[in-house]
Simulated assay, not measured.
Amino acid sequence: MDMPATAPATKAPPKRRVRAVLSWLHLWTGLTAGLVFALASLAGAVLVFHVDLLKLQHPQLAQHAPVADGRVLAQLIERWGPEGMRSLDLPRDELPVWQAYFEDGHRQYFAPEDGALLLYRSHHDDVLLWLHEWHVDLLGGKTGRDVWGVIGWISLAMILIGLYLWWPKSGRYLAQLKMHAGPPVRRWLTWHRSAGVILLPLLLLATVTGVGMVYSKGFQKALTGAFGGKNVKAPELPASTTAIDWTRAIAQARVAIPQARLARVSVPDPDEGAVSFRLQAHGEWHPVGRSTVVLSREGRVVQAFDATTHQLGMRMSQAFYPLHVGAVGGTAMKWITAFIGLLPMFLLATGFLFWRRRRGKR
């Protein structure tokens, strides 16, 4: 008797094979690169409240009047400039002390009344600065930032793949968004995909702005090429050793751009001719501002640039940082930004639990 012929194995349709490959990529990139992304995002959620936590940890920083005295500034620059101090944030309502940035990455805080040292911080001895270094460059300097950029691109691709895998047939969008309480496999799957889709705009905002900061030059070139804008170069002034009257310099910088807040001063080299300030003009999102005022050592204003006059492309590129850190929209946006920082860990946990449960049923 003839044996019945064995039916040839049928190949899965191309669309199903593509979906299977994308599912595999989504799973394993989520469990590897997604873990680093989630941990860095957790640090970002904390850093949204960096200044608030700093004042809670060191209440002496908040016990001052936010006065920027030129005489105190002159003393600070004379004393600490030779030791690597490169810039200072002026006292403001949010943090009413001088905040100094040094070449090796540490920060120091000085009383606005007399310049007394109030606090020394570095990522070696301060949790918040350690989290900052982890969030910005994975504690690896330029190499870490390059790695972070690659992880950012991978995470962006993972988000888009997840959207593709979720996308339902026409008319089933609401059903596909429903979160189920059980059984466990279905619960973790629906919580994972529904949260990812519902909060997709926020997740994309944080990821795209983060990648945009890592590759700021490339993004800026693309945006200015498409929508216009260019960097404004500071004028080159001849070298000079003329003593700087910092009281006059502060006064001149304040009035150079109407309604702008004087935010940061760069410490000039001993023979550098230019004195540079950063200001936050009215309507600027960046917490320190991208507006600039340059003076000569004699106190003459040689450049005053209001960043709000930039063309659209440059304004878009300069919006990445304030959007990423929740500096736009007040307290509500800060909490939303912190919530976004928690989302990758939630997606990682629910994705892992779904994978483990499904694997256990095999």
Rank of each mutant, 00 (worst) to 15 (best):
117 L>E: 13
104 D>S: 15
84 G>S: 12
108 Q>T: 02
93 D>V: 13
141 G>R: 10
171 G>N: 02
121 R>D: 00
170 S>W: 13
83 E>W: 05
168 P>N: 09
161 I>H: 09
126 D>F: 06
128 L>K: 05
168 P>V: 11
142 K>M: 04
169 K>T: 11
108 Q>P: 00
161 I>K: 08
154 I>R: 05
143 T>V: 08
117 L>D: 09
161 I>C: 04
125 D>S: 14
162 G>S: 08
128 L>Y: 01
162 G>A: 10
168 P>A: 06
153 W>K: 08
149 G>L: 11
150 V>E: 13
103 E>A: 15
111 A>K: 00
139 L>S: 09
105 G>R: 11
118 L>R: 01
88 L>R: 05
124 H>E: 14
165 L>S: 09
136 V>T: 14
140 G>V: 00
127 V>F: 08
145 R>S: 10
102 F>H: 15
86 R>V: 15
124 H>M: 13
159 I>F: 10
103 E>P: 05
137 D>E: 14
171 G>R: 04
98 W>L: 07
82 P>H: 02
153 W>D: 07
102 F>G: 13
164 Y>A: 15
110 F>E: 06
120 Y>N: 12
113 E>G: 01
99 Q>K: 09
115 G>S: 07
127 V>Q: 06
122 S>L: 06
116 A>R: 12
173 Y>I: 14
83 E>C: 00
167 W>R: 04
163 L>N: 05
114 D>N: 10
159 I>W: 15
104 D>E: 14
157 A>V: 14
166 W>D: 02
173 Y>W: 15
136 V>W: 13
122 S>C: 03
153 W>P: 04
131 L>I: 07
148 W>F: 10
136 V>G: 11
140 G>I: 03
84 G>W: 12
134 W>Q: 08
125 D>V: 10
98 W>C: 03
125 D>R: 15
145 R>G: 08
145 R>A: 11
148 W>D: 08
110 F>L: 06
130 W>I: 03
110 F>N: 04
109 Y>T: 00
166 W>E: 04
123 H>S: 12
154 I>S: 09
125 D>Q: 13
92 R>T: 06
111 A>W: 01
133 E>M: 03
151 I>Y: 13
148 W>I: 07
136 V>I: 14
119 L>G: 01
129 L>N: 02
146 D>G: 07
121 R>G: 00
161 I>A: 14
114 D>L: 01
109 Y>W: 06
162 G>N: 07
126 D>C: 05
135 H>W: 08
154 I>V: 15
142 K>W: 02
172 R>G: 05
114 D>V: 02
168 P>F: 03
163 L>K: 08
152 G>V: 11
112 P>C: 04
124 H>P: 02
95 L>M: 07
157 A>G: 14
129 L>Y: 02
132 H>N: 08
153 W>N: 10
164 Y>E: 09
155 S>D: 03
161 I>M: 13
126 D>Q: 08
155 S>H: 06
155 S>K: 02
94 E>W: 01
150 V>C: 14
125 D>W: 07
84 G>A: 13
102 F>D: 12
118 L>N: 02
165 L>D: 07
116 A>H: 03
146 D>W: 10
129 L>Q: 02
130 W>V: 04
119 L>F: 01
